[in-house]
Amino acid sequence: MEREIRQILAAHGRLGVDVYSLDADADLYRNGMTSHASVNVMIGLEEAFDVEFPIEMLRRSTFESVASIETALNSLTATLAG
């Protein structure tokens, strides 16, 4: 999953750095992702993982790192499985 998240970030995140060498906990906003870019990342993730982020997850913190995105996606797919 992490590799796919990084691919989506590379395509939509408009980061100023190489996303594949970023720490999973690194702050994506501090590494150049604008809020408009984070919207494209969100849409990219929803398409790739066939999920829809609920309103309460549409926060800055959800998309702030590779790890936080993975946590959010895991909770969504867990909900789907349950």
């Binding site: 809020s35 408009h36 984070s38 919207v39 969100m42 849409i43 982020f53 309103i55 549409l58 926060r59 800055r60 913190s61 998309f63």
Partner: peptide
């Protein structure tokens, strides 16, 4: 829309 929620939240938190 939904994407707007994220933009609004970002604007507020900053």
């Amino acid at each position: 829309g939904r994407t707007g929620r994220l933009l609004a939240a970002s604007q507020l938190s900053n």
